[in-house]
Design a binder for these strands. Sequence first.
DNA 1: CACGCGTGGAT
DNA 2: TATCCAAGCGT
Length: 407
Amino acid sequence: MEIQPQAITDERKAFYAKELLQWYRASNRDLPWRKNKDPYRIWVSEIMLQQTRVDTVIPYYNNFMDKFPSVEALADAPEEEVLKAWEGLGYYSRARNLQSAVREVKEEYGGIVPDEPVAISSLKGVGPYTAGAILSIAYNQPEPAVDGNVMRVLSRFFLLTDDIAKPSTRIKIEKLARSLIPEGAAGDFNQALMELGATVCTPKSAHCLPCPVMEHCSARLEGRVDELPLKAKAKPPRPEIRAAALIVDATGRLLIRRRPQTGLLARMWELPQVALPEIALLEMALPEVALPEVTTGTPSGVPVVTAAATEGRSRAAGDASANALAAGLAAADGLRIVPEEWLTDAEHTFSHLKWDMRVYRCRLAAPAAAVEELPPGYAWMGPGELYRYAFPNLFLRIINEFGPAQE
DNA sequence: CACGCGTGGAT
DNA sequence: TATCCAAGCGT
């Protein structure tokens, strides 16, 4: 580790641990998962807090604990209910892994969350950070819990210049963090590190004046707080143009589709939608042009939108994406639809992917008698049944604005 | 090790 | 508007 030789000394370590612990015990936040040390409650909170802010988690956590207050309750719940309780929180594999791991705890450990590093680390969704957090907070074991906060805070105090985006750096900082844990105070100390990072020593601006350890902080003493921690830039998300179909039948039911078992948004519900082929991308880039009114089908039998696209979008672009949507759903699922009206564009950025989605109001092309025979994975969602299906936020917003009333 | 995996707040 | 990034993990 590239550090100043004088930066890490027993004296500085002792100062750091003592001051930080005292600060935390005097001023820590009152959070719902701090009511008691129930390992299950700590566990759920740590999973929810992965890559997610405290303020976002709190309402989800309270609702989740109401619905699934114990290992037993969560183990016995239907998966759809768990996903529904996670709806909008993101990283949905966390929910599936959590329930899977809780079921293992019920079956293999008699419902008691294990208190040994090897056992707890073997549970699905429990990595090095979460294992350390549960062991230290619930069982007060002297295990480090190194998250982004801890890497930032320690990088600054001890002037560590390793790239915190690299996995190897986390390993090194874990060793340092382990050596800092005060006797008998692992839980409070680990939380103190994170609390400092979340409330004082924040990424963009280190608020040094209220910091309990500023007096001996190496980065501050060297005037290098703004440079640390060192972190490699992430790759920008890959753009993808898509089109979605909002289809409501005569009784006000919305046509929805369940996503695959694995991958992006696994097992969540969505509007039927496709990625647009390159040809559509090309046409969308065209300037507005005058086109003859098209009222009949294309050679491939795919219907063409007759209403001119609105909102500054060119006629060519609207037709191209709507046609690609109809062709795509026919090819992928055997679902025959007729696009009727452009509704809106929805942009959504994932960590690694950026969707630019056109949404069309469509109708089924199938004869009325065949409408009940849907392709596999498809379902009709009746009015007021939104509570039964788990959607990612992107689709929730579209459904709430343009879908049938949910009362 | 690099990448896939959501969402929203802060700047 | 663009960028960062938050109590990370699985593959």
